[in-house]
Amino acid sequence: MQAEKDIILLDLRKLVRRFGGFTVINDVSLSITKGEMRCIIGPNGAGKTTLFNLITGDLKPNSGRVIFQDKEITKFNPEKICRIGITRKFQTPTLFSNLKVIENILMAGYGKHKISELLFKKVDAQDINRTLAILEVIKLEEKKDVLASDLSHGEKQWLEIGMLLRNEPKLLLFDEPTAGMTRQETLETAHLIRNISMNLTTIVIEHDLKFLREIGENVTVLHNGKILAEGTFDEIEQNENVKNVYLGRE
């Protein structure tokens, strides 16, 4: 570990979130360093997606703080959090289904523009070129004029990933990026995400152990809203506690 010289990008401090009387996130503290790729695993109901909702401003914590680049963002609304550089992939493909593939990416590119930069301004060649570059990465060049709703499930997931890339975040959150994919698609997606994470800080929620083995370096295990263990994939695989609550059931 080279923790000393690493810059902490995202710092969660003692987050607590309750729904009614039920504590979904219970005193979670987590630090993500710049350039890191962190996987979060845990059984259903462990609070993984809620954690993402708290980071992206979809939900507000009952207590605790979210610090991003040394700035408190706990009370920011979702679009503001996105604008300072945190973008998320939802569990199910969340796209503009009535827009064309290329327009989906274009919209992602305009995410951080002011409205005054959009009013009465046409889509220009630079926008298009950048969009085409993304389409090349996600291998959808040939479907650029297809409506997003007409894509296959795997293609939709990839399109959403492409949108996130075009959004140019500093921190990317993936919520089960391989859900509902075939084995082949899962492998390709793992490969894609590994490539992405070379230049970006990423947090990935994942169930699929093959996927984790493929890309997993730093793993955090959530259980009943608490952090159960942290370490490399191999360490986690050997951890008795983790085996009991999670891996043991696989």
Partner: peptide, 20 residues
Amino acid sequence: RYGLLLQAIKDNPKRAQFLG
């Protein structure tokens, strides 16, 4: 671009919001 944004918001406000 703004017209496209309106279409996008009509289509999926959540996604638009989470793109900033």
